[in-house]
Design a protein around this nucleic acid. Sequence first.
DNA 1: AATGAATGAGACTTCATTCAT
DNA 2: TATGAATGAAGTCTCATTCAT
Lengths: 199, 199, 199, 199
Amino acid sequence: MADNRAAVERNGGMRSEILFAAAKIIVEQGYESCTMRTIAKMVHITAGSLYHHFASKEEIIEEIMNIGTVALLHRVENVLSELPDSTPFPERLAAAVDAHISALLRPDAIYMRVFEFLPPVIRKRSAAMRRTYANLWLRLFEGGVAQGFIRRDVNLAWLVPYAISAFNRVPDWYRPKSRDEPGIASFVADTVLRGIARR
Amino acid sequence: MADNRAAVERNGGMRSEILFAAAKIIVEQGYESCTMRTIAKMVHITAGSLYHHFASKEEIIEEIMNIGTVALLHRVENVLSELPDSTPFPERLAAAVDAHISALLRPDAIYMRVFEFLPPVIRKRSAAMRRTYANLWLRLFEGGVAQGFIRRDVNLAWLVPYAISAFNRVPDWYRPKSRDEPGIASFVADTVLRGIARR
Amino acid sequence: MADNRAAVERNGGMRSEILFAAAKIIVEQGYESCTMRTIAKMVHITAGSLYHHFASKEEIIEEIMNIGTVALLHRVENVLSELPDSTPFPERLAAAVDAHISALLRPDAIYMRVFEFLPPVIRKRSAAMRRTYANLWLRLFEGGVAQGFIRRDVNLAWLVPYAISAFNRVPDWYRPKSRDEPGIASFVADTVLRGIARR
Amino acid sequence: MADNRAAVERNGGMRSEILFAAAKIIVEQGYESCTMRTIAKMVHITAGSLYHHFASKEEIIEEIMNIGTVALLHRVENVLSELPDSTPFPERLAAAVDAHISALLRPDAIYMRVFEFLPPVIRKRSAAMRRTYANLWLRLFEGGVAQGFIRRDVNLAWLVPYAISAFNRVPDWYRPKSRDEPGIASFVADTVLRGIARR
DNA sequence: AATGAATGAGACTTCATTCAT
DNA sequence: TATGAATGAAGTCTCATTCAT
């Protein structure tokens, strides 16, 4: 459930193996190294055989991108929806930031990290879904404003992409020491919260 | 002087024309579109002729990457060094953030923006120089701590890459309305400062 | 009976469905579009399943080609054999030309039209059968000579392929206006007859 | 001047070598055998190198097709324009038929024969030029009608494609015995003329 | 019979690079 | 310096065919 790899695996083992292999290559070696040949080699078939499972390379990449985006969206949505409605904003924010960042940091959360490695041209294709995700955060912050936790002069239209882009880059520079070190998500959530808090 | 194009121009006009062309292509069309042929076409020579100026494509890319990093480094260094030593940390931070972000947002600051478009494999080659830049920010923040503006519990080893990566992504989502709108850099500097401030 | 689809249907419905599908694709979309996959899709099976009915693509194509040639041969033979032996040559010629051309023009006469769409390499394989068909026409014309309707100086060895190739191309350029317009066959028969007639 | 290979050769030896090689393969082995690799092999370069001379395979094929069509058009046009205006229709027809057919029969007239080997989809691209050629023949026949050599009831809209398609197929079946045997063109011209003649 | 997955060859094309001129 | 032609590797993709299930 770290990402929906399990869900994918239900139908067509090879199909999900291919998606996983491609995602792994992208995150570990970069988008340029992700060719039909390298993907095929990783799942022990030939490049041509990939076309029995996907119509094109584009389809593979797009599917990976969407899996990752949807997984991230669902994960944060779920975490927030499990909190009582009465939960104060700081706690909600901490939970959401933790959901986002700790998801990215899991060694098996390949799909969610893919997006950051894709060339801009391709990224644009998931613009709609990314906007949905951004809206989730916007509503979260709007709740914070309504509850009086956020200064009224904070421009939420800037805050949302600023925050999300900062979250997304954490795996680039953060090397966890112990597997469950919670510190980094707290640090980020705390820094963001104080950055926009009233008082 | 937005970046050190002038400096480059000293040794051979064509050489710098090539670098500029390659950088422009990368930022405007993506790394994938930056081939020896597209570069050559932009400077009105043939692909083969590029090899009279550079030993390989790698050399071109690497040089661009370094130019950008060095330019950014010098820019922020200069801004900070022009401030009196007595300048309080908040002001220094604001100046540095503004230097970094507004540099990236200038339409002609091609070199500095290149880095974000390069594949990870290539990016790694400028790790040393990026570390130098990170150290500049580390010293800045350490000053803030020494002056008592930053909480002692803030992990600067996390803060620096967190902040820099957030800065670098601003051009991805921020579309300036008027040419000289200063708001975005202030917003970022302010949010960061409050995020780490004592009290 | 326009072609011998009925005869084919005796052994195995699927077998003839495949042949018909392949012929249809060739005539309507061109030989290049006729792949094992496109054939399979048209008969609602998979490409691999085709091999339960035919040993190879070659076999399919060759069979179609032969069906068409044989169908044409039989059709013209039948028309001629139904005429009384006393029928004068001009009438026999008109009947034969009509049989050939109007067969090609029928929307359902797929098999007979296939030949003109096949690459030369493949066409050559039906050379023997085509020669048989040519001989039919040769005998027809020899009858015309014997009856004194054809000038003695006409080289029948040239006339036969010249005429047949002209007939075969009619569907390329002739677009019938009404379904039963008989004009085109008459035109061709008339032009050929006058072209070789005595006096 | 049999075709404009000479003219082509003036600019870029390799370019015309490629065109000639491709045309040769198409006529001798069929369109299916004409791949970038077979073309390249014939001119002793690699497949990739072909792209220094042509942007795509399509460009090569189209150029060949046009060279052939134009060459045929010019050839017949020239022959007719060299005849005095007073030349009676039968003589004009004989000259035109001879120009067309004997051109096709020359061993070096590769380009002009290519058209008949191309798949319909590709042929359509030269429809305009082929129409121009058809118009040339239409005017020729209209002259015959005006001079009273052709029966008024002959449908010229049918006659033109009927005749041209018959001419084009001559190389398929006619094997010249001596190099300059003129018989076949006379035979065809004669047969056509009598086929449509008044009286 | 039928399928779905796989294959290996080969299709067109692009790329960084080399080198004689 | 600059070029234009060439290369070899690699890219995506299609095809006829095979075979265990």
